[in-house]
Nucleic acid binder design. Structure first.
Length: 1068
RNA sequence: GCCGGAGUGGCGGAACUGGCAGACGCGCGGGAUUCAAAAUCCCGUUCUGGCAACAGAGUGUGGGUUCGAUUCCCACCUCCGGCACCA
């Protein structure tokens, strides 16, 4: 019989602690009275005099398997904080709901035909029941799920806001200048917010780095000629050639061009994306779902890389603001670093290298001029370029159109991005990605030195390998092929003419003409898909140069004795013409100035962050509020026609097809209709490119949104979850979000980048458009650690399931089957190791209060720690001991030692210490030490034969956040026995009572024990008044008998006394 | 490889801003209570030596700074997490 079971048996005979009876009773009582309901501003029960506190858990996905012991860890922490803050006089918003779209329910539907909604609702019911059994103080009246049409209607609405917005980069120069000032202002604001907890709203302001504006305003600027109609120069979906492309005045443009321009600005746009298409499964797969040998993880079907039109969100426009925001939030450093690295901002330069080709122009467009191309080649080889003026460029590449910044004429120059423009003199070759347009062009028009078969084979091989494969390839040996193309290093070419007499022109000219290679270590998706390779200062380039015997020139002086390969440290420039002698930073400035002056390069910031692929070919997700006309143009469904609900499906099997078609395409009755029926705005006239005639046939977008969509804004809906007219009423979310947003957000570190970045992005768009008043959604973020479990390990490190092991003696384990010894180790909980702990089982045996306290007592919240069932009993014992402080377990009556006597000084001291320390620990989320204080209190009270009510009752209010059922029960029993004079009526819940105030004077001991060290070793202890000063300490210490004995025959050289701490005597 | 975080008794862990290492809990040992057991209460519990007083060692390893280091500095080892040819 277990300890708890035995105890329960005893309780049946007597008045012992019985959580199985107490807890459901109080849960029902709290629910019936709506104790945890948080009224919104405007409701009669709302108290505007209190500050607000919004404490949020990360949105759970209700899996069919139910709750795991990892879930309640964070939930208990937020519950404690919510209860504590409520007791400290805050209006607390503490909601819960469900992130319910997702793959598992759909997979289940494919297998069984059961509608995902049914599966999902069932899983939600299980989760809710389990969470309610913990006694969490959620305001369940605010519950919703992302699958509710009333919710996803607003998810679609936000998508439309993105679709109908563009990012106005504004005057970047000015923005950069304002940056620091802005940051200071925001930091101040955040500080103020932290102090106040709430404040006035500033709506619709931007952050000084560009902002989202409505598409209508953009079109108006085109129409009024305020802005020149051109393709968005920052549009990732357009080729370098198309970016920034300029057309005539708006009124002269045709419908298609107008649409093309507008769409290039939208924050939600369609683009061809290469996806992992699995014909057998009928869906695109994420990179993680594809095995190394190109098969689907599920089913092992072939996967092909195929271009597919996908919705993308232009998150890259917000890269800088997403970075800046990280400075104003109180988040774990590691998470801020992860986001920073994910965004991956690099400052550098874009440089154009003139191409020397026999065939210019061609595939990538632009005028073909073979004569000048040949001339260029010849010229570069034989004639050092004298002219250092910008004319030199014209000379080298005649007939080249002068491009504007950001536009590209890929036919004649090779444009690269580099963070080390200072090393340009060391660029001995170039590398382009295999997908680079230059490669395709060379394949079509080979150069004399092109080995076309080799090149084609290389490019083919590269194509079917995804980026992941390419980069994670186990062997890092460099591969590549020379394209046959050369280009000119503009710096070397120019410099060779300047340095009169000192350099050898011919050598310089050879140095200036450098080969262009293609290699898969250069990625098409980053920068321009081309690099200048500087093997002297870059290890990757060094490795490549060594592999293929390319020249290496150091352009930074390594320190003496440097015996490494590429040198990436500090130093001054060498072999670098006019840069020689400059330190790296100065050399960068100098060369960029030079490049800009020549018009062949410019400063540029580059990000690793890519736009967000927002389409999924699934059923169980939010439909897009978008339709297409017969020409394939897209139109938004007007707000009044939302939500676009999911159709019923006869079966959920994806169509097996080589032609990627989302699952919803099977619902043809749902997908086809007229523009009028779909809710597309009726076109006003011929020139209206954004509307359609109502009778025009349209078909719905059949992709669905990804799982992240619903969780991007749920924290806003909680503020006003039932609002039928608005995503969240302004008064409600302005109040709960205050100026700093969510006050405490606890969840796993696995969402450190994706969810937390996507949500911030949506929030900033909503901020720009004036819908929310905070620049960041989550002010303070905290990650709870993983709860692990024990497993057993054979000597060969393989793991053994817990049920296959016997403990033969204390701490010694053997594998039952073999009799061989195994070691106990900590491992992740997993079905295969049979070490998963089910919270329901634990609660059935010990109750929710014990469970809550155990999880909080295991260790620091942020640490990963192993579940040890044996330890749970210790917390159960604590609950029992608390019970017996109040209740005589034999009779069930109030214990005889409970007295109305005035408390002793000692009893008051332990109470006030407990109040103070537990409060401080909760504020710092140090729940493990807070519970240690509760133990201290109980240890101090247990031996007392008179336990004053005046000490016991405040203790219950300190206990309540941790063990709410136990505290509630005991307090009601004291009330019923008439032991709480002048207390609120019994109908009041302990959770509605204020936190007891502690008296600082009462937390202090009168006397303290001070250690006396001699040469750093404790040799004696002295007892002195708590406030004894240093001189007193020294005097008492030196007078101590033991100390004198130790010091006999030695001279005291120095005495260090620290008030309240110790005395250290240096003697020799 | 790079960037974080962490290594403290048999176990989970504690230690403010450089000031008595091991709070609190588990486990274990002893005692009280009991016909007995469970439960409960009390005492002990870092290691080594000693009956003991006490002595010595001790916070991953090796150095350093300091009257004094788990805490600060340098080098290294191990584990966990993230990123991984991003020019």
């Amino acid at each position: 019989m277990t300890e708890a079971a035995a105890h329960t048996q005893k309780r049946e005979r007597t008045g012992g602690y019985d959580p199985g009876e107490i807890e459901p009773r109080w849960q029902a009582w709290w629910a019936a009275r709506g104790v945890y309901r948080a009224p919104n501003p405007g409701e009669p029960e709302f108290d505007p005099t209190r500050p607000k506190f919004y404490v949020l858990d990360m949105f759970p996905y209700p899996s069919g398997a139910g709750l795991h012991v990892g879930h309640p860890e964070g939930y208990t922490a937020t519950d404690i904080v919510a209860r504590y803050k409520r007791a400290r006089g805050f209006n607390v918003l503490h909601p819960m709901g469900w992130d319910a779209f997702g793959l598992p329910a759909e997979q289940y539907a494919i297998q069984t035909g059961v509608h995902p909604a049914i599966t999902t609702r069932k899983a939600i019911d299980t989760f809710r029941r389990q969470l309610q059994r913990f006694g969490f103080c959620y305001d369940w009246s605010r519950e919703f799920a992302t699958i509710d049409p009333d919710y996803y209607r607003w998810t679609q609405w936000i998508f439309l806001k993105l679709y109908n917005s563009w990012f106005d980069a504004g005057d970047r120069q000015q923005a950069a200048g304002n940056r620091q000032q802005e940051e200071v202002r925001r930091r101040e604001e955040t500080k103020a917010q932290r102090n106040e907890g709430q404040g006035a709203q500033t709506f619709g302001g931007a952050e000084g780095k560009g902002r989202a504006r409505s598409i209508e305003e953009l079109v108006a600027e085109f129409v009024s000629r305020q802005r020149e109609p051109r393709i968005n120069p920052d549009a990732a979906e357009h080729s370098a050639t198309d970016k920034g492309q300029v057309f005539g005045p708006w009124s002269t443009l045709d419908r298609a061009t107008k649409r093309r321009i507008i769409d290039s600005y939208r924050l939600a746009y369609l683009a061809e994306q290469t996806v992992n298409w699995c014909p057998k499964l009928g869906t695109a797969l994420a990179n993680e779902e594809v095995t190394a040998d190109g098969l689907s993880e599920r089913g092992h079907f072939p996967v092909f890389r195929k271009p597919l039109k996908q919705w993308m969100l232009r998150i890259t426009a917000y890269a800088d603001r997403l970075l800046d925001g990280l400075n104003v939030v109180d988040w774990p450093e590691s998470t801020r670093i992860q986001q920073t690295e994910w965004i991956g901002r690099s400052e550098g330069a874009e440089i154009e290298f003139p191409l020397c080709m026999s065939v210019l122009g061609g595939a990538s467009g632009g005028a073909s001029d073979s004569a000048s191309g040949t001339a260029c080649l010849r010229e570069a080889v034989t004639v050092p370029v004298r002219d250092t003026e910008s004319a030199s460029r014209r000379q080298v590449v005649p007939g080249r159109a002068a491009p504007e910044a950001g536009s590209g004429v890929a036919a004649e120059v090779l444009r690269v991005f580099t963070t080390r423009p200072d090393t340009i003199f060391g660029a001995t070759y170039m590398v382009v990605a295999p997908e680079h347009p230059l490669v395709a062009r060379v394949l079509e028009h080979p150069e004399p030195e092109t080995d076309i078969e080799k090149l084609r084979a290389y490019v083919e091989a590269a194509r079917n390998r995804g980026d992941v494969e390419r980069m994670a390839g186990a062997e890092k040996t460099k591969t590549g092929v020379f394209t046959g193309v050369y280009c000119l290093n503009p710096a070397v070419a120019a410099d060779s003419g300047v340095a009169e007499g000192s350099t050898e022109p011919v050598f310089a000219a050879h140095r200036a003409r450098i080969p262009v290679w293609t290699a898969d270590y250069v990625l098409m998706g980053y920068g321009t898909g081309a690099i200048m390779a500087v093997p002297g200062q870059d290890q990757r380039d060094w490795d490549f140069a060594r592999t293929f015997g390319l020249p290496i020139i150091r352009t930074v002086q390594p320190p003496e004795g440097f015996d490494g390969e590429a040198y990436v440290g500090d130093g001054s420039a060498i072999n670098s013409g006019f840069l020689n002698g400059l330190e790296i930073d100065d050399a960068k400035q100098r060369i960029i100035d030079w490049l800009e002056e020549k018009g062949i390069g410019r400063r540029r910031v580059q990000y690793k962050l890519r736009d967000w692929l927002f389409s999924r070919q699934r059923y169980w997700g939010e439909p897009f509020p978008i339709v297409f006309d017969e020409a394939g143009n897209h139109y938004p469904v007007e707000e009044g026609h939302l939500p676009v609900t999911l159709p019923e499906m006869a079966d959920y099997h994806p169509e097996e097809s080589d032609d990627p078609r989302p699952l919803l395409a099977k619902a043809s009755g749902w997908a086809r209709m007229t523009a009028g029926a779909a809710g597309v705005r009726a076109a006003t006239d011929e020139g209206d490119v954004l509307g359609l005639p109502p009778d025009a046939p349209v078909s719905r977008e059949t992709n669905t949104m990804p799982g992240w969509a619903g969780s991007c804004w749920y924290y806003l809906r909680y503020c006003d979850p039932k609002n039928p007219a608005c995503f969240s009423g302004p008064e409600a979310h302005q109040y709960w979000m205050g100026k700093g947003g969510v006050d405490l957000y606890i969840g796993g570190a696995e969402h450190a980048v994706l969810h937390l970045l996507y949500a911030r992005f949506w929030h900033k768009v909503l901020f720009d458009l004036g819908y929310v008043g905070t620049i960041e959604p989550f002010r303070k973020l905290f990650h709870q650690g993983l709860i692990t479990s024990y497993a057993y390990q054979r000597p060969d490190k393989s793991l053994v399931a817990v049920d296959a092991v016997d403990e033969v003696e204390e701490g010694k384990f053997i594998e039952r089957e073999t009799g061989r010894p195994v070691a106990q180790v900590v491992a992740k909980m997993s079905k295969s190791l049979k070490n998963v702990v089910n919270p329901d089982d634990v609660i059935a045996e010990y109750g929710a209060d014990t469970f809550r306290m155990y999880e909080m007592f295991m260790g620091p919240l942020e640490a990963s720690k192993p579940w040890n069932t044996r330890d749970v009993g210790g917390l159960f014992k604590l609950c029992n001991r608390i019970w017996r402080l109040f209740i005589d377990p034999d009779s069930g009556a109030i214990a005889a030692a409970v007295t109305a006597d005035a408390p002793t000084r000692g009893a008051l001291r332990i109470l006030h210490k407990t109040i103070k320390l537990v409060g401080e620990d909760i504020e710092h989320l140090k729940f493990n030490t807070a519970i240690a204080r509760l133990f201290d209190f109980v240890n101090a009270l247990t031996p007392m034969d008179r336990r004053p009510i005046a000490v016991l009752e405040p203790f219950l209010r300190v206990l309540a956040p941790f063990a709410p059922h136990l505290a509630e029960e005991l307090r009601h029993r004291l009330c019923a026995a008439g032991l709480i004079p002048g207390a609120p009526a019994e109908s009041v819940s302990i959770t509605q009572l204020p936190w007891p105030e502690h008296d600082e004077a009462l937390t202090k001991d009168d006397e303290v024990e001070i250690a006396v060290q001699i040469l750093g070793k404790v040799k004696a202890k002295i007892v002195v008044p708590a406030d004894a000063d240093e001189a007193t300490l020294e005097r008492v210490a030196l007078a101590d008998a033991k100390v004198r004995e130790q010091l006999a025959g030695r001279t005291v050289r120095k005495v260090i006394a620290v008030k309240g701490r110790l005395v250290n005597i240096v003697a020799g």
